[in-house]
Simulated assay, not measured.
Amino acid sequence: MPSDDRVALGLELLAHLEHAELSVKDAMDRIEIVTTDPAVQREILTAAQREGVVEREDGTVRPTATGTFVSFESDVVVKEGEFDCQRCGAGISEGHFVQFDSDELGPFGSTCIRKVLGRD
């Protein structure tokens, strides 16, 4: 996936954070789902600040939009098949994919999707 595609996907992920605020570390943990490349991770966080997706102050990241979190009913699609969870690497037969405008994010197992989205 080209860098600009990962940045767009990372921006959408940050725009849909369910929490009113996260530590920079927790935000970076979420961004790591999109890419493990440290340069692209920094680019995502910098772009999110620049574009007003998040505000960052004293080690805290706050999404600027409210009520835009990912809905399990409408934004997460479950597909049957042979997958490896993008978060933990486990083999799974049911993959959960988050549908964003720019792309989909996944697959994740049933437990990892909740962690990725900040529900656990």
Rank of each mutant, 00 (worst) to 15 (best):
G109M: 05
A47E: 15
D101G: 01
I44Y: 04
V61R: 02
G91E: 13
H96N: 15
D58C: 01
S93L: 15
T68V: 15
T46Y: 09
G91V: 06
E57G: 06
T46S: 13
R56F: 03
A39D: 13
D29H: 09
D29I: 06
V54L: 00
G109Q: 09
I33Y: 05
I33M: 14
P63M: 10
E73T: 14
F69S: 15
E57C: 04
G91W: 05
Q99C: 12
T46W: 01
R62S: 08
V70D: 10
P38E: 07
S110I: 04
T64I: 10
T60C: 00
I92N: 15
I31P: 01
P107M: 01
V70E: 07
T46E: 15
D37Q: 12
F83V: 02
T66N: 07
S74K: 11
Q49T: 07
D84S: 15
L105Y: 08
R42F: 00
G95N: 03
V98W: 10
R42M: 01
S74W: 11
I44W: 06
T66Q: 13
V34M: 02
K25L: 00
T111Q: 14
T35A: 10
A65G: 09
D29A: 15
A48Q: 09
P107W: 01
T68H: 15
G91R: 14
E104D: 05
T35F: 10
F108T: 08
E57R: 14
E43R: 14
E82S: 14
G89W: 09
V61Y: 06
G95L: 05
V98L: 12
R42H: 05
G67T: 11
I33L: 13
E43T: 04
G67Y: 09
V70A: 06
S71Y: 05
D103C: 00
P107A: 01
G89E: 07
G106A: 11
V53G: 03
D29Y: 09
V77R: 13
Q49D: 00
V77G: 01
E104K: 08
I44L: 07
G95S: 09
A27W: 03
